[in-house]
Write a protein that binds this DNA or RNA. Sequence first.
DNA 1: CTTGAGCTTCCAGTGACTGGAAGCCTTATG
DNA 2: CATAAGGCTTCCAGTCACTGGAAGCTCAAG
Lengths: 129, 129
Amino acid sequence: MNIGDVAKRSGVPAKTIRYYEEIGLIRPRRSENGYRAFADSDLHKLAFLGRARALGFSIEECRTLLALYEDDGRESAQVKAVAESHLAEIDAKIAQLQAMRETLARLVRACHGDDRPDCPILADLAHLD
Amino acid sequence: MNIGDVAKRSGVPAKTIRYYEEIGLIRPRRSENGYRAFADSDLHKLAFLGRARALGFSIEECRTLLALYEDDGRESAQVKAVAESHLAEIDAKIAQLQAMRETLARLVRACHGDDRPDCPILADLAHLD
DNA sequence: CTTGAGCTTCCAGTGACTGGAAGCCTTATG
DNA sequence: CATAAGGCTTCCAGTCACTGGAAGCTCAAG
């Protein structure tokens, strides 16, 4: 398979696939003409990576997960630890965004949004502690 | 005021203040010795920027908000539009994170997390559509 | 006079791509 | 068989918003 095929089949853009090779996540063979020649195992890895990235795992977490995936002697506890740590980060990010959201929503509600200049949003931002 | 003072008073790190000057968000005067000389208005702007950034506004949105803040002829509707658009982005991000969170939490619950290798988290990631 | 803190500029790196240029390779069509 | 289109290659630069560090100037205290 050429890069275009795996890109289509895995859903990972060709540019991204080249980048993943550059940082050592995958190591496709090369054909005689210099083209990358992807095996089924490469396609599987890329699909794996695509899904892990979609769940928000960082590249380094993906590297760890991929290594665990390929290690028959892994302990599921290791995988779970990575996932739990990531879950905690997601929860923290959600909490932070929700705090922002509350403040912002309050300000937006308070702003009449007409042609006059006075605005509680700017007033809040300008307020010195 | 020197940069260290405004950094402490505004809560914006000195490095970040220099960066904000570089991209034209602030234009402090210079003393004869070459040091930046911050006026109260600069301090206010930095505090403004710090708060706007804390609410998740992008630098370009901050630039717009700062311009509106300084424009006596602004219409509060313009400010509200920026804030509402940002609020929508935040909501989208929260929704996306919550979707990730649900999937991930389900997988974590399903993984027994012991010394055996079989793991529903990896199984899910590896699953080809 | 020296020491240490604070200031300056400039360069490089972060994360995870993404866009684009220049050029080789392959395939389809006239 | 020539050519044109499309796919592949590498390399370089840009994104966003800083952040770290090096080299060197300035200032206040002892």
